[in-house]
């Protein structure tokens, strides 16, 4: 088993780091455009029993 998987990473994490490094090593004129692909805006909320999980946790307090 590879070291990164033992440390709790998966191949997607591995791939993200590798892609990020590659984008930073591009020629300057290509880099600006490539760095846009670093961005991600998605927000993920786990749900439980029909409502967001964190709301339920807050309600329990």
């Amino acid at each position: 088993m590879s070291a990164w998987r033992q440390a709790g990473l998966n191949y997607i994490n591995y791939s993200n780091i590798a892609a990020k490094m590659l984008r930073r090593a591009l020629k300057p004129e290509l880099r600006a455009d490539a760095l846009k692909r670093d961005e991600s805006h998605v927000r993920i909320t786990p749900w439980l029993n029909g409502r967001p999980a964190h709301l339920k946790a807050a309600g329990a307090k």
Partner: peptide, 29 residues
């Protein structure tokens, strides 16, 4: 399309990050 200088720079940055990594996960990254 690769830039040698930029690659060198990011390598040294990554190396210093490796040396200062606090936990297993950061170290693996």
């Amino acid at each position: 399309n690769l830039d040698r200088g930029a690659a060198q720079e990011s390598l040294s940055k990554a190396q210093s990050e490796l040396n200062s990594a606090a936990n297993d996960k950061a170290k693996a990254e």
